[in-house]
């Protein structure tokens, strides 16, 4: 099966300031480390992880706002990683891959009306230049996301958070993309509005067969929205699998930690303390050590000697852990 997006061993390292007098090897911040992922047509894949884990860098590399250090990004068979980020703005594929950014206020030009915001990509990416045609497409997009056409002349500061979220989504869908990267699309919204926006996103995906990469820190939202989920820790994917299963029965101790830390509705918190600690430094991490070992409640000596790589556990599930919380299937030759 071919996937719409097929990312292979993607690496993004940021060089740090050189040491004094240029002696010694330069340091690198390993933001994204050998990440491979696929997104099928019409599929919604979730990406979760703590702040600083590299989610946003991965999004920016996939959206071709940053150049990858290594690896390939095959989009419908074409390697986009080979196109420099500076040139991608004019690339033919730019239209097919859209991003909805986290903060609906910050990501709108305050001097553009809602209509201008939606019209700009139509002009630049869809190649429309007829005023009437653009206006028609803007209205179509507004109707599609449930934004009252009467609000199109308003400026961002005259719109509510939910309406601004709709403008951002309308701007992304107006050019009829195939993949939308949603970076925390509802983090800035109240729960009362969040439900509407999530419904809208699910509806658009169904109607247009869109694929989503859904980045969020809210595990419950990911569980409701996504077919599959990937858990990222310090630049690496540590677990992936069907969203419901991964959260119900985490295989990686880190996923387990995230699930346990989640407040439960109507259930008092347990007194058991969670393992403390914050992620270690992503600058020149020890390549022979599991990056979670320092925080892991069940780390054993082997975890400090060899970094685990993703291996399958059960159908469609993968985990990067020497001692996963669910049993691996017996290797073929033993069966």
């Amino acid at each position: 099966m071919t996937h719409l997006l097929d990312v292979n061993r993607l690496v993004k390292r940021f060089p740090m300031r050189r040491r004094a007098f240029g002696r010694g090897a330069p340091s690198f911040l390993h933001a994204v480390d050998e990440v491979s992922l696929t997104i099928g047509a019409g599929e919604c894949v979730g990406l979760v992880g703590e702040s600083g884990c590299g989610k946003s860098t991965l999004v920016r590399v996939l959206a071709r706002l940053l150049d990858a250090t290594e690896g390939t990004i095959a989009f419908d068979g074409e390697d986009l990683a080979a196109v420099p980020a500076a040139r991608f703005a004019r690339h033919a594929r730019r239209r097919e891959l859209q991003v909805v950014f986290q903060d609906p206020t910050e990501s709108l030009n305050p001097r553009y009306s809602a209509a201008d915001c939606i019209a700009e990509p139509l002009r630049l990416l869809a190649g429309l230049n007829d005023v009437a045609a653009i206006a028609a497409r803007v209205e179509e997009a507004a109707r599609e996301v449930g934004l009252p056409v009467a609000l199109l002349n308003r400026f961002p500061h005259q719109l509510s958070g939910g309406q601004k979220a709709r403008v951002n989504i309308a701007r992304a869908v107006a050019v009829r993309p195939r993949l939308i990267i949603l970076d925390e699309p509802t983090a800035a919204l109240d729960v009362s509005v969040q439900a509407i926006v999530l419904d809208l996103l699910a509806d658009l995906r169904r109607r247009h067969g869109l694929s989503y990469l859904f980045v969020s820190h809210d595990l419950n939202v990911v569980r409701l929205m996504c077919d599959r989920v990937m858990v990222m820790y310090m630049g690496r994917i540590v677990e992936s699998g069907p969203a419901g299963e991964v959260f119900a029965r985490p295989a990686h101790p880190y996923t387990r930690l995230l699930v346990d830390a989640l407040p439960r509705l109507g259930v008092p918190a347990s007194n058991a303390p969670l393992p403390a600690g914050e992620p270690g430094s992503p600058i020149d991490p020890d390549p022979h050590q599991c990056r979670f070992a320092s925080r892991c409640p069940q780390a054993r000596p082997r975890c400090s000697e060899m970094s685990p790589s993703l291996a399958s556990v059960g159908a469609a599930r993968e985990v990067a852990c020497h001692f996963p919380l669910i049993d691996r299937p017996a290797p073929e030759h033993i069966k």
Partner: peptide, 30 residues
Amino acid sequence: LFAHPRHPYTAALIRSVPASAATLADLDAI
């Protein structure tokens, strides 16, 4: 409050929390 919300707003607010929903269809906006 969570077992028997009495104000319609409280009830609606609880139904809009993603943690309360098994599927997206269970999630109600206000």
